[in-house]
Simulated scan of single mutants.
Amino acid sequence: MFTIEHEFDATVITLVDEGPDYLQDDVTISAFDDCVTLEQVDPRSDEVVRITLSMAQLADLRAALNLPEGSYRLKPE
């Protein structure tokens, strides 16, 4: 399950882990004009862990999801 909310300066997507297996805490993804952040609560420390990706890193990630093992560099558009 997931939710999508459009806020003033970002689009916020929350991924909710569902099912009978071991469940992870929700992941919140916020897309801004210049970066994307991913947040999840660390169950060991009960603190939010945040990862920030630049738009170039996000493009690399998107490409990597469809490529075989190896090292790559995207051509600038």
Rank of each mutant, 00 (worst) to 15 (best):
D21E: 10
P68N: 02
L23E: 06
L74C: 03
A63R: 13
L23T: 10
E5R: 12
L23M: 11
T37N: 01
I51M: 05
A59M: 12
A64E: 01
D25H: 07
Y72L: 13
Q24K: 11
G19N: 02
L15P: 01
F32Y: 14
I13T: 07
D33Y: 12
A56Q: 07
L38G: 00
V41K: 11
A56T: 14
S45D: 09
V27H: 03
E18V: 15
D25G: 07
D46F: 15
F32W: 15
R44M: 12
L53T: 00
Q57V: 06
L61P: 01
V41G: 00
Y22E: 15
V48L: 10
V16P: 06
A56M: 14
P43W: 10
A10R: 12
A10C: 11
R44Y: 08
Q40H: 03
Q24Y: 13
D46S: 13
P68I: 04
T52H: 03
A31G: 02
M1E: 08
A64D: 03
S45M: 11
D46V: 15
V16I: 15
V49I: 15
R50E: 12
R73G: 02
I13L: 14
D33N: 10
G70A: 06
E77Q: 10
D17P: 03
A63D: 09
K75N: 09
A64Y: 07
V36A: 00
P43R: 02
T14D: 00
Y72H: 07
F32R: 07
D25W: 08
L74G: 04
L15D: 00
A63V: 09
I4N: 08
A56H: 09
I13K: 03
V36S: 01
L67T: 08
P20C: 00
V41A: 02
E69F: 15
D26H: 10
P76H: 05
I4Q: 04
I51K: 01
C35K: 12
E7I: 13
D17V: 05
E47Q: 13
D60C: 07
D46H: 15
V48S: 03
Q57P: 04
A10Q: 11
L65F: 13
V49P: 04
D25V: 08
C35L: 07
F2A: 12
D17M: 04
L38C: 02
P68L: 08
F8A: 12
L53I: 00
D46M: 15
N66E: 13
D26Y: 05
E69R: 12
R62Y: 07
H6K: 14
T3Q: 02
L61T: 02
L15E: 00
I51F: 02
R50W: 05
E47V: 13
A59D: 10
Y72W: 14
D60G: 06
F8S: 12
R44N: 09
R62E: 09
M1V: 11
S54T: 13
V49C: 09
A59E: 09
Q57T: 00
E39N: 01
S30E: 11
T37I: 05
D34P: 06
E47T: 09
V41M: 14
A10F: 13
E18C: 14
E5F: 14
V16D: 05
V48D: 02
D26S: 06
V16S: 06
V49E: 10
L61H: 00
V41L: 13
E39Y: 03
V41F: 11
T11K: 08
P43T: 01
D60R: 09
L53E: 00
H6M: 13
E5M: 11
E39I: 02
